[in-house]
Simulated assay, not measured.
Amino acid sequence: MSYLRSLVAVVLVLFSVSAMADKVATLSVQQALLSSKSAENFRAKLKSEFGSEQKKLVELEAQAKKMQQDMQKSQGTQSKEVADKQRLQFQKVFSEYQRLGQELQQKQRDREQAFLQEMRPKLDAVIRKLIESKGYDLVINKQATIYAKPELDITQTVIDLLNKQ
Score class of each variant (00 low, 15 high):
Lys45Cys: 02
Thr26Asp: 01
Ser48Thr: 15
Lys66Ile: 11
Leu27Asn: 00
Lys66Trp: 09
Gln31Thr: 11
Val29His: 03
Val29Gly: 02
Gln30Met: 06
Ala64Cys: 06
Ser52Leu: 14
Ala44Leu: 13
Val24Ser: 04
Glu53Ala: 08
Leu27Asp: 05
Lys23Asn: 07
Val24Thr: 04
Leu33Ser: 09
Leu57Phe: 09
Thr26Leu: 03
Thr26Trp: 01
Leu46Thr: 11
Ala21Leu: 06
Ser35Met: 07
Met67Ala: 14
Leu60His: 11
Ser28His: 06
Gln68Gly: 14
Ser18Asp: 05
Phe50Thr: 05
Asp22Ile: 02
Ser18Gly: 11
Ala25Ser: 04
Gln30Leu: 04
Met20Asp: 11
Met67His: 10
Lys37Leu: 15
Glu59Trp: 01
Val24Ala: 02
Gln30Tyr: 03
Lys45Val: 10
Val29Pro: 01
Ala44Ser: 14
Ser38Val: 07
Val58Thr: 13
Gln31Pro: 05
Lys37Thr: 15
Ala25Gly: 05
Ser18Ala: 14
Ala62Cys: 03
Ser35Pro: 06
Gln63Ser: 09
Glu53Phe: 03
Thr26Lys: 02
Val17Gln: 04
Glu53Pro: 04
Leu60Ser: 10
Ala25Val: 02
Glu40Trp: 08
Leu60Cys: 10
Gln31Leu: 08
Lys56Asp: 08
Leu60Lys: 09
Gly51Pro: 01
Val24Glu: 00
Thr26Ile: 05
Lys55Thr: 13
Ala64Glu: 04
Ser36Gly: 09
Lys37Tyr: 08
Lys23Glu: 03
Leu27Val: 01
Val17Cys: 03
Ala44Trp: 00
Phe42His: 13
Lys37Trp: 08
Ser52Lys: 14
Glu49Tyr: 05
Lys37Gln: 15
Met20Gly: 14
Ser28Tyr: 02
Phe42Ile: 08
Phe50Val: 05
Gln30Thr: 07
Ala62Glu: 15
Val17Gly: 07
Gln30Asp: 08
Met67Leu: 15
Ala19Asp: 04
Leu34Met: 10
Asp22Gly: 01
Thr26Gly: 01
Lys45Met: 07
